[in-house]
Design a protein around this nucleic acid. Sequence first.
DNA 1: GCTTCCATCACCCAAAAGGGGTATTTTGAG
DNA 2: CTCAAAATACCCCTTTTGGGTGATGGAAGC
Lengths: 210, 210
Amino acid sequence: MSKEIIHVAIVEDDDELRQMLAYVINGTPGFYCKHTYIDCESAIKELPNIYVHVVLMDIELPGITGIEGVAILKKALPHIDFIMLTIRQDDASLFGSLCAGATGYLTKDTPPSNLLQSISEVRNGGAPMSTRIARKVIASFKIDRKASPLTTRETEILNLLCDGMNYRSIAEQLFLSAHTVKTHIKNIYRKLHVTSRASAVKKAIDDGLI
Amino acid sequence: MSKEIIHVAIVEDDDELRQMLAYVINGTPGFYCKHTYIDCESAIKELPNIYVHVVLMDIELPGITGIEGVAILKKALPHIDFIMLTIRQDDASLFGSLCAGATGYLTKDTPPSNLLQSISEVRNGGAPMSTRIARKVIASFKIDRKASPLTTRETEILNLLCDGMNYRSIAEQLFLSAHTVKTHIKNIYRKLHVTSRASAVKKAIDDGLI
DNA sequence: GCTTCCATCACCCAAAAGGGGTATTTTGAG
DNA sequence: CTCAAAATACCCCTTTTGGGTGATGGAAGC
């Protein structure tokens, strides 16, 4: 664990909460919060000129949202870690924030001790998340591939279609006649309800078949 | 926090570690470990017949790997939470496990107290992860879309290609001549280094262009 | 003012794809 | 053993695609 003092900035439009957060941070050894902002516009203007390690970012802000703000700021200041601090638990907010470059995601019911621990954690290479949030993130990976309607051979050929191979190339690679490849592809089209290679590839990817 | 006793099973081929883990779990109030397995084969045979909440799963096992094991077991026993407990930190192991349905991922340097806390956490709707692991998971969402090489019009047409539309349909939809559509598609192919619709769709999806 | 990119439209031609059939062999489940 | 599904192979025919080449007008950048 690093012993350096962690410099924290806050972007939060609620005056009371913003001041309370700064108060808690400044009242804890090892943490320091000098800069707070009421919206992303001012944060975007000021942050490049100050020294800060971690930013606590609200999502629901007037003007530029916290998610858009992170996307903009993270691109300009990739060394800063952004922790979302929000009441929102919907998938769009969560995954939007992560795609934008947030490194942590805490709900506002996080008690102060956990919040401080999360700030330390993000500074030490972690990615702090509220309990339910973590579960959502993990669950998003699980692929319950509905039993593919395709046979092994068909799936094999579908993969080669993705590489842009034509009948003949596929046939050579699989030691089949081009006629057979064509028959398989016709069956693939029928099963996926498509009529072209392009849409077969798209549907296969969307449905997690490949 | 639930006060019920959490029933834990272990799948781990190292005799010493397996016994040590069981010893720690059984020595802690609120935790109970009656069943341990040295490989996935025996776990797959026994787990459906026993009462258990959480399974600690190693990855490197003789025969069926922990990842394959989770995929098989999670499908049959979706109510059980699987926590990977492994020395492996590579992306393939991590994301393979998550896709298979693991709910937690701990490295073997996790101290016993953290391990027990993680078991509680997963039982309470969380998704416990080691610090670095969490960061990897979060980082996997971040999309730094390299500026698309395609123009607005080309991207527009690329999207229609995904729907399996032909020159004529695209032309009608965009109020263009089919000749123009063809020119755009030729330019798309050149920029994406492909020579067919199927591979253009694949590459566009892979590169996050659509 | 010049150049570059974008968007638009056009023609020719060979290759490939797609739709409709039919048929044999292998494999697997009951 | 039997039946169904899967995998294999072939034919005919029309439509679509991909590659090459060329041209024009407008907007943006230098």
